[in-house]
C-alpha cells in the first residue's frame, strides 16, 4: 500500500530560485596585491539554496574572491554583504559571517594534533559553547553523513586524502552554516578519491545548501550547478545558467576556455 501523494515524486526537481533571498551580494569588489590587481570590480549575487560554480584559468582571482567572502582576504573597494551582514572592519560582523559561512580548502587544513572527532567538535564547543556530549553526537552524525564514522578516533595523518577532505566538510558543517564555500576541494586529491568527495558535495547540494564552488571538475559543474561564473584577470567575464553556459556561451574568451578543457 502506497500513499498516493508520495508515490509519484519527480526524480528531477527543478528548483525555482527566482523568488529566493539574496544571501551573498558583491558590488564592485576590487583588491590589489601591491601593484597587481587580483579582483577588478567583481559584482555578483548568490541566492539562497543556489549552487554556483566559479571557473577560470589559474590566477584569474577565483580563490581570492571566495576567500574575500569570509574575510580570509580583505577587499579594498566595493561592498560584500553576506546574509544581510556587511563585511567591514567591525570584528563582530566578521565573526558573525565566519560562523555562518563554512569553508573547505584545497589542502584540507585539518588540525593534525587533534583526533577526527576533536577536529569536528572544536568549533561547536568553543564558539557555539555546546556541551561536549551534544557536540560529539552531532559530530558523529556528520561523520556518518560523509561516510567515515569508524575513523572518529584516528588522527588526520592516518587518513587518505579523500577521507581528510570529507572530514573537512564535516568540520565546516558542524557550525551549521547557511553557506558553504569550496576552494578547489578536489585539486589535491588522487583521481580515485575525487569521486567520494564530489558525491558528498552532491548530496549536500541536494539537501538545499547554498554553495559556492571553485573547481575544475566540469562533470560536477554540469550535473550540480545552477549557475556558472567564468572569471579571468580578476574580472567576471560571463555568468549564465549551466545549460546556456555550456551550450551557448556568449563571450569569445569563454568559448576558447571551454574548447581547451572540454
Amino acid at each position: 500500500m502506497t500513499d498516493p501523494t508520495t508515490a509519484e515524486t519527480p526524480t528531477e526537481t527543478i528548483r525555482d530560485l527566482s523568488k529566493a533571498r539574496d544571501v551573498i551580494v558583491c558590488e564592485n569588489v576590487s583588491k590589489w596585491y601591491g601593484d597587481f590587481q587580483a579582483l577588478d570590480r567583481v559584482s555578483a549575487t548568490i541566492k539562497e539554496q543556489e549552487v554556483v560554480v566559479v571557473l577560470g584559468p589559474s590566477g584569474s582571482g577565483k580563490s581570492t574572491w571566495i576567500r574575500c567572502i569570509n574575510r580570509l582576504e580583505q577587499h579594498q573597494e566595493g561592498r560584500i554583504v553576506v546574509d544581510d551582514v556587511e563585511l567591514t572592519n567591525d570584528l563582530r560582523n566578521i565573526e558573525k559571517v565566519r560562523s555562518e559561512v563554512g569553508m573547505v580548502f584545497q589542502q584540507f587544513n585539518l588540525f593534525p594534533h587533534l583526533t577526527i572527532l576533536d577536529n569536528v567538535t572544536l568549533a561547536p564547543i568553543w564558539v557555539r559553547k555546546k556541551p561536549r556530549p551534544e557536540a560529539e553526537s552531532q559530530a558523529m552524525a556528520l561523520l556518518e553523513r560523509v561516510g567515515i564514522p569508524e575513523q572518529a578516533q584516528k588522527y588526520p595523518g592516518q587518513l587518505s586524502g579523500g577521507q581528510q577532505q570529507r572530514v573537512a566538510i564535516a568540520r565546516a558543517l558542524a557550525m551549521e552554516p547557511r553557506i558553504m564555500l569550496f576552494d578547489e576541494p578536489t585539486s589535491a586529491l588522487d583521481p580515485e578519491m575525487i569521486k567520494e568527495v564530489l558525491d558528498v558535495m552532491k548530496t549536500l547540494a541536494e539537501s538545499g545548501m547554498t554553495m559556492m564552488v571553485v573547481t575544475h571538475e566540469m562533470g560536477f559543474a554540469k550535473e550540480v550547478a545552477d549557475r556558472l561564473i567564468f572569471m579571468e584577470g580578476g574580472q567576471i567575464v560571463e555568468q549564465n545558467s549551466t545549460e546556456e553556459f555550456f551550450s551557448n556561451p556568449t563571450e569569445e574568451r569563454t568559448k576558447l576556455f571551454l574548447s581547451q578543457i572540454l
Binding site: N70, R71, L72, E95, R98, S99, V101, G102, M103, F105, Q107, N109, L110, F111, L122, A123, W126, V127, A168, R171, A172, A174, M175
Partner: peptide, 14 residues
C-alpha cells in the same frame, strides 16, 4: 602552516 590559522578562522574561532 598558514592554512591552520585560516581553517581555524573559517570555523569562527577567535
Amino acid at each position: 602552516p598558514k592554512g591552520q590559522a585560516e581553517a581555524a578562522k573559517a570555523v569562527g574561532l577567535g
